[in-house]
Write a protein that binds this DNA or RNA. Structure first.
Lengths: 138, 138
DNA sequence: TTTCGTGCAAAGCATTTGCAAGTAG
DNA sequence: CTACTTGCAAATGCTTTGCACGAAA
């Protein structure tokens, strides 16, 4: 909690109650939550919180580089507190987005074909380990 | 044109005029157009075409595996006739999405960490070659 | 006091759906 | 003839914006 406060102050964001709780939520839920999920998770504890505040807050965090946005499904944005580059898997059965830690040889490359590379994103779609166990390979 | 007709028939889609023109458009414009771009490009020649038809058609193509959808910006889906897996670069300055042909060592892997991989997507964000030339490195 | 943050209501967009009329085979 | 396709209008769903009120420095 104290660490989150410092994180915010270090980036010039006031450590308000909603912001701290949103950061905390992201820290506890590493399943790449949507705005909806964050809202549902916090509304019980902070009955006055609005989705607008969650959007505002996440956008502020994004600008300051505190979090990462993930766009895989195209219908909703998901958020990730991890800032180290890593891959993701979207499971077509259960819809979960799972971290994949593989080392990509292009991860450190600053230039490719003359283009300047600033961000690297990689994701897979398929069936996750758990779903494979439950319902067989195909 | 004839090739497109066969493509459609082979997948069980009637080779209607709008579908052929949309396929043709995708063949000519390899810049990963949005629905809006396809619509603007075709409305002159087919004044009655609607965005709904473009959406319907692209979704049908997607289901049949004729085209690929690309989600990078989060605000709009882009479409690609190329079916070979390849990477993309989104230029933060000009907004173009450019093909990147690099060989990824995970491209052929069927399983990672026990998960069954069916699609592989990779993209970068940065500044493209052309924009670098125009306005310098930073 | 002045700036920043919050949150309601409304607006904005991309996309989908309902459905009636048209068309291919 | 029968199923599929088209396209208008309306609905949907995620996200942003306008704006007034409240809190912090």
């Amino acid at each position: 909690m104290k660490r989150f406060k410092e994180t915010l102050q270090a980036r010039g964001l006031k450590p308000t109650y909603p912001r701290l709780r949103i950061l905390e939520y992201l820290g506890k839920h590493e399943d790449h939550p949507t705005v909806e999920m964050i809202y549902e998770g916090l509304i019980r504890q902070i009955p006055t919180i609005s989705k607008t505040t969650i959007y505002n807050t996440l956008n502020a965090f994004l600008e300051k580089g505190i979090i990462q946005a993930i766009t895989i499904t195209g219908t909703e944005t998901r958020y990730d507190l991890r800032n180290l580059p890593h891959h993701h898997l979207l499971c077509k059965r259960c819809g979960k987005i799972i971290d994949i830690d593989i080392h990509c040889p292009y991860a450190d490359q600053r230039k490719i074909d003359g283009h300047q590379i600033e961000e690297r994103h990689g994701y897979f779609k398929g069936i996750c380990r758990e779903c494979l166990k439950k319902r067989g390979k195909r």
